[in-house]
């Protein structure tokens, strides 16, 4: 019997994601062999200790939060190409919203995959071009005139995105929004670990939505 699109997505997805894993490990391995420069366990473990506990946890949280939004194929793709919160997830959400398809539906799966793939290809090409043209580009991108524009890329992105989602679902949005604004006002240093707060916001939103839903207010 012919396997369904969804089942094949899992099979192809696993092949690609595990091959990607091999490719990514090839870089440090080949570097060490070529230069005969194995760093030894100690500095690697010490360095890793500084970042891994947070990164591994955030990685797991990202999988739990973003897989339902993205769908099958785009999850296998987006976790390899990276930059999820600032690029791939908003791209997929915006594409599904414009195409008027629901995440998790068959149509949503297709549109989300096309969006994540397009975004990955365009990003990779732009970065490659940028690396090739680094010498003429650096003074422009590094100039103090342009700097504030890039410093504010996240508010610029999420402002527009918020209008679409918050206006449609303002009842669900109130609780997590108020919580987050108060939290960041009280503890500004949290902005470096916003990734950890995404699931916190999600849990608050889900809790508030559940209560309103039970009471028949949604």
């Amino acid at each position: 019997m012919k396997k369904s699109y969804e089942e094949m997505s899992h099979i192809y997805g696993r092949i690609w994601i595990l091959s990607a894993l091999g490719m990514i490990f090839a870089y440090p391995i080949v570097t060490c062999i070529y230069y005969g420069a194995w760093p030894g366990w100690k500095p690697v473990l010490t360095g890793l200790l500084g970042v891994a506990p947070i990164y591994w946890t955030v990685g797991l949280i990202e999988v739990l939060t973003f897989v339902p939004m993205l769908g099958t194929s785009s999850s296998y793709l987006a976790f390899v190409t990276g930059n999820l919160t600032s690029l791939k997830v908003p791209a997929a959400l915006n594409a599904m919203e414009n195409a008027k398809v629901k995440p998790g539906s068959e149509e949503g799966e297709v549109i989300s995959t096309i969006a994540v793939a397009t975004s990955s290809i365009v990003t990779t090409v732009i970065i490659a071009l940028g690396v090739a043209l680094l010498v003429p580009l650096t003074p422009i991108l590094d100039s103090p005139i342009v700097k504030p524009a890039f410093d504010n890329i996240l508010p610029a992105l999420f402002g527009g995105l918020a209008v679409v989602y918050v206006s449609k679902n303002w009842k669900i949005a109130i609780a997590p929004l108020v919580f987050m604004i108060v939290l960041f006002l009280l503890v500004p240093s949290l902005s470096s670990s916003v990734g950890v707060l995404v699931p916190v916001g999600a849990l608050i939103a889900i809790g508030a939505a559940r209560i309103m839903y039970k009471k028949g207010r949604l």
């Binding site: 939060t65 339902p68 939004m69 919160t85 997830v89 959400l93 629901k102 995440p103 998790g104 996240l154 508010p155 999420f158 995105l161 918020a162 989602y165 918050v166 679902n169 669900i172 949005a173 997590p176 929004l177 919580f179 987050m180 604004i181 939290l183 960041f184 006002l185 500004p188 240093s189 949290l190 902005s191 916003v194 707060l197 995404v198 699931p199 916190v200 916001g201 999600a202 849990l203 608050i204 939103a205 889900i206 508030a208 939505a209 839903y213 949604l218």
Partner: peptide, 20 residues
């Protein structure tokens, strides 16, 4: 509603960060 809440949770975290 659950899916929508997930999105709104993410958006809220980033909107909150703007106030830091």
């Amino acid at each position: 509603i659950l899916m929508t809440s997930l999105f709104l949770g993410m958006i809220s975290a980033f909107l909150g960060m703007v106030f830091a």
